[in-house]
């Protein structure tokens, strides 16, 4: 079984639980005492990930770190439909890579703001929040026009991709860092759609959605 080195409150760990849950891939969680124990910086964990970061997976001896990289791996290895990461579609792969990069920027801003407010990390909070708002503004505009074109998801496809999974968690957790999503109504509609993907699961800080109206 896949082992996930995990911390319950981490949005980057959650995105892997989310994708594996949706794909129906069984996995075992190895809880790391990230806070306050800082076990991810402990000597034994640094042997697994010298960067001292979560998440990490161990798939029968194949060890991989970095949430976005792991999403790519999981979709390629465990999604027979090929829809979550369409390997033969050059444009889609380009778009997905672009939004995975954006997910990292969201982590560097919105997630950092949350770590500052909730867990007392020493970051420049104004800069984190301003950075998150700048990204959310771009995201909202992108999603608004996607809707106008009849697309529900980040990468202009009829089916969600790992890009949606990658960006979702720290967008949803932004208010714990004092980043209101009130100015981003198209983002709100998109997060509701993500919550209605079959197999969706929550984490602390993220609520589920009501069921969609039956047609």
């Amino acid at each position: 079984m896949i082992k996930l080195y995990d911390f319950e409150l981490s949005g980057n760990c959650y995105k892997l639980r989310l994708l594996m849950g949706i794909l129906g891939v069984p996995f075992e969680r190895i809880a790391i005492d990230f806070y306050p124990g800082r076990e991810h910086k402990s000597p034994w964990f640094l042997k697994i990930n010298p960067l001292g970061q979560l998440p990490v997976i161990d798939d029968h001896g194949f060890i991989l770190r970095d949430a976005q990289a792991i999403l790519v791996y999981l979709a390629c290895a465990y999604d027979p439909s090929g829809l979550w990461y369409p390997r033969d579609d050059a444009r889609m792969l380009g778009r997905i890579a672009m939004w995975l990069g954006c997910a990292d920027s969201i982590t560097a801003t919105a997630s950092a703001a949350r770590l500052h407010d909730s867990l007392f990390y020493d970051f420049d909070i104004d800069k984190c929040r301003a950075g998150a708002h700048a990204l959310f503004r771009v995201l909202d505009e992108h999603l608004w026009f996607a809707e106008q074109e009849g697309n529900d998801w980040l990468c202009s496809s009829k089916h969600p991709t790992i890009a949606d999974i990658a960006c979702f968690p720290y967008v949803m957790l932004s208010e714990e860092g004092g980043v209101s999503r009130l100015p981003y109504p198209a983002v709100r509609r998109w997060t509701d759609r993500v919550k209605r993907i079959p197999g969706f699961m929550v984490m602390p800080g993220i609520f589920g959605a009501s069921p969609a109206a039956s047609e």
Binding site: E8, L9, A31, Y35, G37, E175, P204
Partner: peptide, 16 residues
């Protein structure tokens, strides 16, 4: 560790 994880999870459900 299990006690701590459980408490953290529960409290962070209340936080939002």
């Amino acid at each position: 560790a299990a006690v701590r994880q459980f408490a953290q999870m529960i409290f962070n459900q209340d936080k939002p």
